[in-house]
Lab assay of single mutants.
Amino acid sequence: MGFKLLSKLLVYLTASIMAIASPLAFSVDSSGEYPTVSEIPVGEVRLYQIADGVWSHIATQSFDGAVYPSNGLIVRDGDELLLIDTAWGAKNTAALLAEIEKQIGLPVTRAVSTHFHDDRVGGVDVLRAAGVATYASPSTRRLAEVEGNEIPTHSLEGLSSSGDAVRFGPVELFYPGAAHSTDNLIVYVPSASVLYGGCAIYELSRTSAGNVADADLAEWPTSIERIQQHYPEAQFVIPGHGLPGGLDLLKHTTNVVKAHTNRSVVE
């Protein structure tokens, strides 16, 4: 069995187990497998329904001669939608809004960016022009300005110390501490036991640490421990890039980060 097929099978099995364990909360999309990078042309966006009122959005972007996937989250909030992270750029984010209108038909009224990198804030200006209120932590807003990236308009308070959590509509926002970046936030959907790890969490097929220019490698494993301790009931975990899975993604990420750190020390 090929690795790609095995990865998709694991996603399907995880979703099936969740649907059985929580039949009222989960209505997993039966329309197909989780979209992969090879299936999404740059400039297009796919939506994948995880649970009743919960979707991931998947886009792709060219970077350094390669094409990478990027995940975000959409959560229903009454007759409105909360968006977590842009679709990595203005063109993708405009396509995301169009796809949401086509498939869901509810307005996106608020959006949260989970850290300051372009795959999370690139497209904020498109959201703002569409009347979406954009939010991020003060740290993310400051770092985005320093980096020359787009800056969300509103500040999220109460997320300055490791372990801080605040309720934001249908989700809980959690600051686990520094990891992929010093400002990275985690998003949890309690009604569906869905954990969105953003770039602080890796997919299972990833074996290298990737972009760690703004990471705190020493603190990252401790931050992941905080996530595990705060959300032990999480059933569906979405990484910032690639295929979702279960809580095993947290341990896998820790292993990859520690291996990278150990290699760096040896070198």
Rank of each mutant, 00 (worst) to 15 (best):
A192Q: 07
A218R: 14
A136Q: 03
Y34N: 06
S162R: 13
M18I: 06
Y48L: 07
W88K: 00
S27C: 08
S30L: 08
H154V: 15
S205A: 09
I40N: 10
S137Q: 15
Q229V: 10
S162I: 06
Y188D: 01
S208H: 15
S137P: 05
S62P: 05
T153C: 14
L204S: 12
E203L: 01
S161L: 14
T253K: 00
R167F: 11
L243F: 12
I74A: 13
T182G: 11
L73M: 14
A144C: 11
V45W: 02
E203Q: 14
L82H: 04
I20L: 11
A15L: 09
S191H: 14
K258R: 12
E267W: 13
D125E: 12
V265H: 08
I50T: 09
V54P: 01
H117M: 00
E233P: 03
P244W: 06
G158V: 06
I186P: 00
G131S: 09
N149Q: 11
V108T: 14
I224D: 01
S191K: 07
S30C: 11
H252E: 03
V28I: 09
T93Y: 00
K102E: 09
L83E: 04
G32E: 09
A130T: 06
N184W: 01
D119Q: 00
L24T: 12
A90T: 11
G65C: 03
W88N: 00
T207L: 13
I50G: 02
F174T: 01
S27V: 07
G163E: 09
L96W: 01
P138E: 14
Y34G: 09
H154P: 04
A15C: 09
G245W: 02
P244I: 06
S162A: 14
W88F: 15
E147H: 05
R142V: 11
D125Y: 10
V124L: 13
G2H: 10
A98K: 07
E147Q: 08
F63R: 10
T153K: 10
V121S: 04
S27Y: 05
P41M: 09
P190A: 05
E233S: 13
D29M: 12
R167G: 06
S139A: 12
P152F: 06
I50Q: 05
H252I: 03
M18T: 05
T14S: 12
I58L: 10
R46N: 12
S113T: 14
R142D: 13
Q49A: 12
A19E: 13
G105Q: 11
P35Q: 11
T134L: 03
V54A: 10
P138Y: 15
D119A: 03
G169A: 04
I50W: 14
I58T: 07
A111W: 04
V132Y: 00
S38W: 09
Y188A: 04
T140P: 02
F168D: 01
E219A: 13
G131L: 05
E101G: 12
I40H: 07
S161G: 14
Y231M: 04
A21W: 09
D77Y: 12
G89M: 01
G197L: 03
V257Q: 03
Q103F: 15
H252P: 00
G32D: 14
P138A: 14
A25F: 06
L247A: 08
I224Q: 00
Q235P: 04
I84K: 02
A25V: 06
R46I: 13
E219G: 10
A111R: 03
Y135S: 02
Y175D: 02
E172N: 05
E80D: 12
T182H: 08
G43L: 04
S264N: 15
Y48P: 05
T140I: 03
G148N: 07
Y34S: 12
I201M: 14
I104N: 01
D248P: 10
S223L: 02
L83D: 02
L217T: 10
Y12H: 12
Q103Y: 10
P69R: 10
F236E: 09
D29I: 11
T253C: 00
A218K: 15
R206L: 12
V265N: 05
T60K: 11
M1W: 05
Q228F: 05
P232V: 09
D79Y: 15
S27G: 08
G246Y: 06
S205N: 07
G163A: 08
L217Q: 08
G177F: 00
V112S: 03
G131R: 08
L250D: 02
A90R: 14
D77W: 08
I186W: 01
D248I: 04
T60C: 14
N255E: 05
S7E: 09
H154E: 10
S191D: 08
G123H: 02
A165W: 13
L97I: 04
P69T: 06
V126A: 06
F236S: 06
V194I: 15
A200M: 14
R226S: 13
G89D: 05
A213P: 12
M18N: 15
G72H: 00
S16K: 07
V108K: 02
A111D: 03
N211W: 13
Q103I: 09
V194C: 00
G131W: 04
E145K: 14
V42C: 13
P170N: 15
V265A: 09
V146K: 13
G242M: 03
T86D: 01
R120Y: 02
Y68S: 11
V265S: 10
V257F: 08
A59M: 13
Y34W: 08
G72F: 04
T207H: 15
V256H: 03
A130R: 14
K102L: 14
A144R: 14
F168G: 02
G105W: 06
A66H: 07
